[in-house]
Every structure is written in C-alpha cells, then in structure tokens.
C-alpha cells in the first residue's frame, strides 16, 4: 500500500516538486540566526498550539450578549470536537501511509532546525489542528478567523522552513482541518441537545 502510494506520488511528479520546495526553503536557513531562532520558536510544540487553545478559550467569554455568547460557546465546543476528530483522521492517514519525513529522504541536503520527529509526515497534524480551530473561529467572527488562518499558515510555514514537513503535508493538514470542522458542524445538529445541556450546566456554575 505504501509502496503504491509512494510510486503514485513519484509518477505524478509531486514528490520531486515537494522535495525541491522544502530543500530550497530550508536552504534559506543559516543566513540570519535571529530569523532561524524565530522560526524555531514558532515551530515549537508549545507556542502555536497554545495560541489555538487560547483562541477557543477566549471565544467562550467574548460574546457581548447572551445569544452571541451561546453561539460562541457552542461553536467552541464543536471546534474542540473537531480538534479531536482531526487527530483521529491524521492517525488513520498515518497508519495507511507512512510517508517518510523530508530529513529522512534528503537529510544530506537539509539543515534541520527541529528535532527529528518519528511519526509519518502526511498530513501535518499540527496544521490540521490549527486549521480546524481557525475554521471554528471563522464561522463566528470572520476577522478573527482570518487571523487564526494566518497563524495556522505561519505555523505550517515554520515547520516547512525547519525541514520537517513537505508542502503537500501542510496542504493536506490544512484540508483535513477544514474538512473535519465541516463534518463536526454537520454532526452538531444531532448532538445539539447534549451540547446545549453542557453549556447550561456550566452557566449554572456562573462560567458560561
């Protein structure tokens, strides 16, 4: 299965384009140390994932009226469900196709700025999570949502620059994130009573 997918990737020429982009982009590193360090910080496992979580947390308290607050809170809960779902979808991709990381295939041509991750490359899990959170924010507040999409894209770019993902991994991750949020929104109608009851209980504790 993996061989078939890798061959298909080669035949379509995607693999070469992918590799050329990551090698070129990563080749820019090593010139300005401050920029490299900034990319290392942005690519870290802590900064952007926390920013996505904070965005969801902030949305919970952001509504100006009760109706708006309920809308934000329900969207936030759907967003959190989408994050969980995104992890499951990425895991399903990973067990189907263990795409090697760029530093495994082109290690001699890359200046690795991040630790060599051991999980498969496609699709980019952190990007999927970022885009799922951004999609949730976008549905209730367009301006804020675009900022979130920008942050998720920057996160993907930093990981590409660091040499640990291919561009198609980033694009795949973004598509998974958006698609998963769409599915979670669709499923929401079936879970509406449950979600509303949860919000009510939290409101009973003066926190919603």
């Amino acid at each position: 299965m993996e061989l078939v997918q890798n061959d298909l990737w080669q035949v379509l020429g995607v693999s070469n384009i992918d590799a050329n982009i990551v090698i070129w982009l990563n080749g820019l590193s090593g010139n300005v140390k401050l920029f490299d360090d900034l990319m290392r910080v942005i690519a870290s496992d802590y900064l952007m994932p926390l920013a996505f979580s904070l965005a969801m947390f902030g949305l919970w308290f952001s509504g100006r009226t009760r109706a708006q607050r309920v809308q934000y809170q329900i969207t936030m809960l759907v967003g959190i469900s989408a994050l969980t779902l995104a992890n499951i979808v990425v895991w399903l991709f990973n067990i189907t196709w263990e795409r090697p990381r760029p530093f495994v295939e082109y290690g001699d041509q890359l200046n690795l700025l991040f630790y060599p991750a051991t999980d498969p490359s496609f699709p980019a899990n952190p990007v999927a999570v970022g885009f799922a959170a951004a999609s949730a924010a976008w549905t209730v507040n367009r301006k804020f949502g675009w900022w979130m999409f920008g942050a998720a894209t920057l996160f993907g770019f930093s990981r590409l620059y660091a040499g640990i993902f291919y561009p198609t991994d980033i694009i795949g991750g973004a598509l998974v994130g958006i698609a998963v949020y769409a599915v979670a929104s669709y499923l929401r109608r079936f879970l509406e009573p449950l979600i509303t009851s949860f919000v009510r209980i939290i409101r009973g504790l003066s926190a919603a």
Binding site: D36, D37, R40, S44, D45, F114, Y115, P116, T118
Partner: peptide, 10 residues
C-alpha cells in the same frame, strides 16, 4: 535559546 524548548516527546 531558540531551540531549547524543542525536545521530542519521546
């Protein structure tokens, strides 16, 4: 400092 926090979870 830039890379100090980048430690693999394993």
């Amino acid at each position: 400092l830039g890379g100090a926090r980048n430690v693999n979870d394993i």
